[in-house]
Design a binder for these strands. Structure first.
Length: 758
DNA sequence: ATAGGGTTAG
């Protein structure tokens, strides 16, 4: 009999346990694997005849993650089997088992041997290898296999195409490639099915192509291809990734009517979507909903929830989730610890970070790239360069290799400390290491300009003597490792010995060098790049410096430049209509990207005295709901705004309630201005925004006071504010003016103007 | 052959 038919159940036949049952029982009773699988195989060899039996065994071993014994079993069976196509079946099965376990290299070895021995040249073997590469995110390799398959005269089938499209979605999704494969498939008369579309949807989700995903979904309906839970979950993921959380909720609500019921994957996708767009209450509501619907939380759901709390710094709740998870028998894993390490690191609780790292290792969990990345960038943020060096050295010792995210994260951490020069060094190092920086890497550095945090260098120096001894005495430091060099220098406080203005000038040159590199490397800038440039402008002390940056903006994107420059010089109708179409584009981004752009643009305008222009931008942002519920008659919420945007907004709000007063209406009894706790300040709890607003209120004589119970809130009564608004001088201080104005005609020439003439 | 979790810029 064949194993295939008993599907892992113990079966008795003629009061004797079948071969299937025996081996399955052996598998079950040796969860740690076998030392003597060869003996068992020899013993059972007479009973295991068909290659189907061995295939079943391979799959069972694969399900247990035991690829070592699976390989032995495969070798054993392949030597026994004489028929070529049976050998071929075994090979395909082995390749797919290895592929599922992420062992693409081993799969390739098996494949190569099978081909050279003359039994591997089958569609199944090729498809299995493509799928193995897909799982490991090796799209190029998968396509290479596909080509050689065609070259050797084999015809790809539906499974081959589906696996190949799947490969395009992993490791930097590439929709262009996927659609080329899709077309190739159609041309070769292979009809796409549900899985083809599901895989295409996954590519869209990974590539951030929400509109395309939606039209593919419609196409599916049109072609009468059923949608299953994979389809919906992938579609929801695409919507969430595109920042369309409301649309995602709408789609989720339609699922039940199609008899596709949300499962734990649906919920964790949605929860992550909510969390990503800052809607924590909705995220937590979904967890309750999930429990009410009787859907059990699994490992991923728990880790998702825990990560949300850890990221918010709500550690008691994070630990409670961890406890609950362990109480139902799911042990904390590397993902759990990475979230915790990252959360504590972000809050500057480094003792806790160290403690957790020890605990993690005690639990026999193996730290990975992300673990070390969280540790190292966390320590850097706190100026703990000795610890950062230690963690980095250990990381190297484990044989782990840095990637672009690792470097970007580290560069960002150093940039936030104002160490722009060190970052430029690391940028060179990563390129020498064969890692290509991406737009995120560059944006971090641009954004760093002028953000020089005040670092106490004296203190750093004292500490450095210890760390140097430590570094020299105890560690094996590779001479040419730039990261260690940078940490060493930082620990010595070398970069802090230059004077502030000298350093700013150096930083400025570094940033200009970054732009040059971006052009050389053909890195496409994005909205964040534009926001970063505008923010850098706001930190320039002179118009001349800012004009150099704006020139870079012009080279990147003439439209954004036209708007920024036009508003800076005193806008007119032409600039404004350009601005409106730019705002239309920005509105398509997710909400935090959009608000960051408005914040940056307004800050820049305010900084250079174009206050009326700043206010126009802010009011347009309000109209388009860039910031959530900005104002009512009684309350204005500024906590998502930059200081320039917030100040422009306060003027607009006061003017608004002033007209209420002059129309003869009464103001609410209590008026509040919320500044939050300084979301835009670098130090938690340091209310840069609050201070800016306080200064503004004082300067215009607005009668507001800090609330007793909330230091982030200014309050006043309707009566007091009414009296002040009625004073003769009030209107004048409220109405904003631009320092520069341009004639309101002939402005179609504007975009062709040269950079700021000053 | 298909779905969700931990990392980067604002």
């Amino acid at each position: 009999m064949s194993f295939k038919k008993c599907k892992g159940k113990l079966m008795k036949k003629n009061s004797e346990i079948s071969p299937c049952g025996v081996v399955v029982e052996l598998l079950v009773s040796s969860p740690g694997g076998f030392d003597n699988i060869d003996d068992i195989l020899v013993e059972f060899q007479p009973k295991l005849r068909a290659s189907d039996d061995y295939t079943f065994l391979l799959r069972e071993l694969g399900n247990r993650g035991d690829w070592v014994n699976a390989m032995r079993c495969f070798e054993f069976a392949i030597n026994l089997e004489k028929r070529r196509n049976e050998k071929g079946k075994l090979a395909s099965s082995m390749i797919s088992t290895l592929g599922r376990l992420g062992k693409a290299d081993l799969a390739k070895n098996v494949f190569d041997v099978a081909v050279s021995e003359g039994y591997g040249n089958t569609v199944y073997a090729y498809s299995a290898l493509i799928s193995a590469y897909a799982k490991s995110g090796c799209c190029d390799e998968a396509i290479g296999v596909f080509r050689s398959m065609k070259d050797s005269g084999l015809k790809p089938n539906l499974v081959t195409y589906n696996a190949l499209i799947d490969a395009c979605g992993k490791g930097g999704a590439n929709y262009k490639r996927a659609s080329e494969i899709f077309n190739d498939m159609l041309e070769n008369g292979v009809l796409p099915d549900r899985i083809t579309y599901n895989s295409l949807l996954a590519v869209c989700s990974g590539a951030g192509l929400w509109e395309v995903a939606r039209s593919l979904f419609d196409e599916m309906v049109h072609r009468r291809i059923d949608q299953d839970i994979y389809t919906y979950n992938t579609l929801l993921d695409a919507a969430c990734n595109g920042g369309h959380i409301d649309v995602a909720f709408e789609i989720m609500a339609t699922m039940a009517a199609k008899s596709v019921f949300p499962n734990e994957v649906t919920y964790s996708t949605m929860i992550r979507g909510c969390a990503k767009s800052g809607k924590m209450d909705r995220a937590l509501n979904l967890f309750n909903e999930m429990k009410l619907a009787g859907i059990k939380l699994d490992r991923v759901s728990y880790n998702t929830l825990l990560a949300i709390y850890a990221n918010l710094g709500r550690f008691n709740e994070a630990f409670a989730v961890g406890k609950e998870m362990e109480s139902i028998g799911i042990k904390k894993d590397v993902v759990t610890y990475n979230s915790l390490l990252d959360g504590f690191g972000k809050q500057g609780m480094y003792d806790k970070v160290k403690e957790l790292f020890v605990e993690m290792k005690r639990g026999n969990l193996c730290p990975n790239l992300l673990t070390y990345s969280a540790l190292i960038s966390g320590f850097c943020k706190g100026g703990l360069y000795k610890e950062a060096t230690e963690a980095y050295t250990e990381f190297k010792r484990q044989g782990l290799k840095a990637d672009v995210v690792f470097y970007s994260n580290l560069i960002d951490a150093l940039c936030k400390k104002g160490l722009v020069e060190s970052c430029a060094l690391l940028l060179d190092e990563m390129m020498r290491d064969g890692i290509q920086p991406n737009v995120v890497t560059y944006n971090s550095i641009i954004n760093a300009f002028g953000q020089t945090e005040t670092v106490d260098y004296a203190e750093t120096q004292i500490e450095s003597s210890n760390s140097l001894t430590y570094t020299d005495g105890k560690m094996v430091v590779k001479e040419d490792d730039q990261i260690i060099e940078v940490f060493k220098q930082l620990a010595c406080g070398k970069s802090g010995n230059v004077k502030q203005d000298q350093r700013t000038r150096k930083d400025f040159r570094c940033v200009l060098g970054i732009f040059r590199k971006m052009h050389e490397m053909k890195i496409k800038p994005n909205v964040v790049t534009f926001s970063a440039i505008l923010n850098a402008c706001s930190r320039c002390n002179s118009f001349e410096e800012a004009s150099l940056l704006l020139e870079e903006l012009r080279l990147f994107d003439n439209q954004v430049y036209g708007v920024a420059y036009g508003l800076l010089m005193g806008h007119n109708e032409h600039t404004w209509s350009q601005a409106l179409s730019l705002f239309d584009e920005v509105k398509r981004m997710d909400s935090s990207t959009a608000s960051a752009f408005y914040n940056a643009l307004t800050d820049m305008l305010w900084h250079f005295g174009q206050k009326r222009g700043a206010q126009l931008v802010v009011l347009e942002g309000k109209r388009r709901e860039v910031w959530e519920n900005t104002w009512t008659q009684s309350c204005i919420d500024l906590h998502l705004m930059s200081s320039g945007a917030a100040r422009a907004m306060v003027h607009a709000w006061l003017l608004n309630i002033r007209s209420t007063v002059f129309e003869g209406h009464e103001l609410p009894r209590l008026l509040s201005i919320l500044t939050g706790w300084g979301k835009h300040s670098k130090v938690v709890g340091d209310g840069a925004l609050k201070r800016a607003i306080e200064a503004l209120l004082v300067s215009i004589g607005a009668p507001f006071q800090v609330a007793k119970c909330n230091i982030g809130r200014f309050v006043s009564t309707g009566a007091v504010v009414t009296a002040w608004l009625r004073e003769s001088g009030t209107l004048e201080v409220l109405v904003l003016q631009d320092d520069r104005t341009l004639p309101r005609t002939r402005f179609d020439l504007l975009p062709n103007l040269q950079p700021l003439p000053l």
